[in-house]
Design a protein around this nucleic acid. Structure first.
Lengths: 231, 231
DNA sequence: TTTGTAATTTAGGCTCTGTTAATATTGGAG
DNA sequence: CTCCAATATTAACAGAGCCTAAATTACAAA
């Protein structure tokens, strides 16, 4: 009577791989071995080995030399890890006074140790938030996630009013720098000018504060365009 | 210039062994291989192997066939784990609505994943508590722990007024049963009678509620004697 | 079509932490 | 003092997950 749908209980490594692969898939269709290796800071042959084990467990499908795709079961677990990570980040920020640039590492470790119950209690205590402190959408308990339609600041035309909606949580230094420019999730500002050749972008923040943002950074600042300045 | 005192970063297993050995030492002088194996639910030869590695790391001293004792470094780490565990239990109980019978397992996993900073933030949010929900003393940040002088209820003479101060957190079912008797840390009651031959003890709780407690359970209920009833 | 380069996988090894089976030591009972 | 039972250790091995070096495959450029 055991249909194989008991308590999964995957290893820390397994959880890390699934989450990483999920995040790579969200960007471009399927995840390459070398990309996984890069994200997890592991040698590519180690990834080959692990991918084999994970595909034998039915968590992903592997076409040798081509890449990897999560199965339904794999995606379910990956989304659970994403939910855990983002609830944890939100909790640490709202309830324990962490800054948005210091929650990532803590959540990265805790996400493997918490129970479902603890996560749901935290979510409850937070009023079931839909976004984490970096603006990333939090998957629901049953694995649904909003796919927000955002534009990197680097691609916003000049003269638009935009709202900053999401920033990558990975690099703590970068987050500190972003905050030091006066940028935070929810801030509304205007694009004033952009230099050619992937040059920096000038923006006007609330209070008419002017800042210049390099192109590389601007690619990681995800915005919604809210309106258009009168020329 | 590396004196070997950098960031420890011990494995999950190492942390479990050290904590278990610390707790065994608190009961009877030194920890036997079989006792460690029992507590950690591991085969004795595995313990022999691990003990060898831990003693090579300078965390404990091992006299073959005799037993094991923590070194200063070992005790420091053990007490850190105990602090983590007890702060976590307290936090989960006070801030996230857990019952005293359900916090142990959660804390057991989290204690390996949290950072020092998170524990200190939790402790701060709780007002630096000195006892966990089961009445166990919480070691300070620098590894000092109160050694409360408590008497098992089983050893309290009849006719005394006592306060329940501490209960083992290990067995969730037992904790539920204890609570169902009306017993909680801090409750003051009187010993009314005791049957011979390790028989049960009759107590009178606040509101004159009478309960009977088996001897085995009574050995795990640690009390202070507060006064004496007039014969 | 051939060929070079980059990406990937296979082969072989290592550490950690666990297992069981066999052996050694200790300490108490006779 | 001897011997047995309990306890502990050693030996041999397993598997997860990492590594490097060598072999293989894919793909694009010539």
């Amino acid at each position: 009577m055991n249909t194989g749908t008991k308590k999964p209980g995957y290893s820390r490594s397994t959880e890390d791989y699934l989450k990483a692969i999920y995040e790579l898939e969200s960007l471009g269709g399927s995840a390459q071995t070398s990309a996984i290796a890069e994200v997890l800071d592991i040698a590519p042959p180690s990834v080959s080995g692990m991918v084999k084990r994970l595909s034998e467990s039915g968590l992903l499908e592997h076409v040798p030399y081509r890449g990897v795709q999560l199965t339904r079961a794999g995606r379910r677990t990956a989304l659970k890890m994403v939910r855990r990570h983002r609830i944890l980040e939100t909790y640490l920020t709202s309830k324990l006074g962490y800054d948005w640039d210091s929650v990532h590492d803590e959540a990265e470790r805790l996400e493997h140790a918490v129970s479902d119950e603890l996560i749901e209690r935290m979510a409850m205590a937070l009023g079931n938030p839909r976004y984490d402190p970096h603006g990333a959408p939090i998957p629901t308990k049953d694995g649904e996630i909003e796919e927000p339609d955002l534009v990197p600041l680097a691609d916003v035309p000049v003269g638009k009013t935009v709202e900053l909606r999401m920033v990558s949580d990975k690099d703590s230094e970068r987050l500190r720098f972003i905050a030091s420019l006066g940028l935070r999730v929810g801030v509304v500002f205007e694009t004033m000018a952009r230099q050619p050749f992937r040059g920096p972008i000038t923006i006007r923040l609330p209070g008419s504060k002017i800042q210049v943002v390099g192109n590389e950074l601007a690619q990681l600042l995800y915005c919604v365009i809210r309106g258009q300045e009168v020329g």
